[in-house]
Structure formats: C-alpha cells, structure tokens
C-alpha cells in the first residue's frame, strides 16, 4: 500500500538500462541477418524484462504460476512499447537499440515484416502526437504486464492460493491505474482533458496487443521456415503463445 508518488518512483527506478545489440551490422541486410539481429536483441531484452517485472512493487507477491503466465502473455507487447518509446523522437525510424536503427524500407528484406513496421511507426506517431510522458509510459508498461486477457476474463481461480494471487493482481492493477491517473493529473490539464487523455492512452493498448499478435505469428512463421534459429528464452516465450 505505497503512496502513489512512491509507487510511481519505484516503477521508474525499475526501468531497464539501455541495451546495445553489439554486432557488426553488415548492410544491406538479408532476411536471415535482420531476423537474427532482431531475435538476438529480443533475447537480451527479455532477460532485462524479467528483472524489471520483479521490481514492480507487488509482482513477486503473486504466485509463481501467475508471474510466469503474465510474462509469457505480454512479453512482445512490452518489447514493442519499449521500442515505440525509444523511437518517439525519431519520426520514420524504429530505434531497436542505439546501434540498431531501421526505417520502414529496410523492412522490405524480411517477408511480412514491413506491415508490422508500419503499424509500429503509426502507433509511435500517435504517442508523439499525445506527447507521451515518461511517467505515463512506465505506467502503461506495467498495465500491459497485468492485463492478460486469458487471466482476467477466462480463467476462474480454483484454489485458495489462486484466488489470493488473482486478488493481489487486481489490487496491483488498481495501483497502476491510480498511478497513471496521478501522472496525468500533473500535466496541468482540465478535468475533461485528463479523462480524454486517459481514454486515448489506454485505447492504444489494444493496438499494441494487435501488433503483438501479428508479431508473434510472424516470428513463428520465420521459425517454421527456418529463416532464423529461435533458441533459449525467446523460444520458451514464443512457444507459450503458439
């Protein structure tokens, strides 16, 4: 039951450090080389994402099964929101990392990826129009972590432990929503403008879910066609969704 200000500063502190791909980029890209760079980066980011989730106040108090379930559901949405945040001040570019920046045309070499790049660029422009603030961004990311639809809408807890974990998760979601409302209230807007902003920001979450679903299909197709070798943590996270 942390004060909102403290809650928000804890999730700000949980932010992962900047990550570099650290590969010799050979341009022009081939389908295989671009997919390899993208998956290598994703694999590194996933390790940091797990440390990030553990620092969200209350996350480690959920049952281990729920922690696993939530991360397996949302990982690509979280990666995509992070990508959009890094790209928000660079119109027309996707800043995967400081040493791995792509424009939409470069997506041409990977079958089916330009469509996803375009969606990411469009959603990034929307965040640019809205002038997304860092405090809002960290709240949205935590909301994505806790917003598994399977979890909230389809599973009914069977045991006392499951029920307790679900209740904790809902309380945690309350805290994150309160924190987002609080962050918006600091912007000097009228009450009506604050309500509209909350609506616009949260509606973007459905676009992020949609892009994540498209991205997941794309990655599993690339894996099936042996364009890229998916291994380790990324494989585990992908398999959970296919």
């Amino acid at each position: 039951h942390l004060h909102l200000e403290e809650f928000i500063s804890r999730i700000m502190e949980a932010e992962p450090p900047e990550i570099y791909l650290m590969e010799d980029m050979k341009k022009p890209f081939t389908e295989a080389s671009m997919m390899m760079s993208l998956t290598n980066l994703a694999d590194k980011e996933l390790v940091l994402m797990i440390s990030w989730a553990k620092k969200i106040p209350g996350f480690l108090e959920l049952s281990l099964a729920d922690q696993i379930h939530l991360l397996k559901c949302c990982w690509l949405e979280i990666l995509m929101l992070g990508l959009m945040w890094r790209s928000v001040d660079h119109p027309g570019k996707l800043i995967f990392s400081p040493d791995f920046k792509l424009n939409r045309e470069e997506g041409q070499c990977v079958e089916g990826i330009m469509e996803i790049f375009d969606m990411l660029l469009a959603a990034t422009s929307r965040f640019r129009e809205l002038k997304l603030r860092r405090e809002e961004y960290v709240c949205l990311k935590a909301m994505i972590l806790l917003n598994s639809s399977e979890y909230l809408c389809t599973s009914s807890p069977q045991t006392a432990e499951e029920l307790e974990s679900r209740n904790k998760m809902l309380r945690l979601l309350d805290s994150v929503i309160d924190a987002l409302v609080w962050a918006i209230s600091k912007l000097g807007l009228t009450t009506q403008q604050q309500t509209l902003r909350l609506g616009h920001l949260t509606m973007l979450l459905s676009h992020i879910r949609h892009m994540s679903n498209k991205g997941m299909d794309h990655l599993s197709t690339m894996k099936r066609k042996n364009v890229v070798l998916v291994y380790d943590l990324l494989l585990e996270m992908l398999d959970a969704n296919t």
Binding site: V47, I50, K54, L64, D232, L233
Partner: peptide, 13 residues
C-alpha cells in the same frame, strides 16, 4: 527448470 522460471526465482544481486 525453464530459463524463465530460473530468472524469476534467482535473488536480485
């Protein structure tokens, strides 16, 4: 043990 489980259950340094 999966890698995700392993990363979740290791104590932060």
């Amino acid at each position: 043990h999966t890698k995700l489980l392993q990363l979740l259950t290791t104590k932060p340094e």
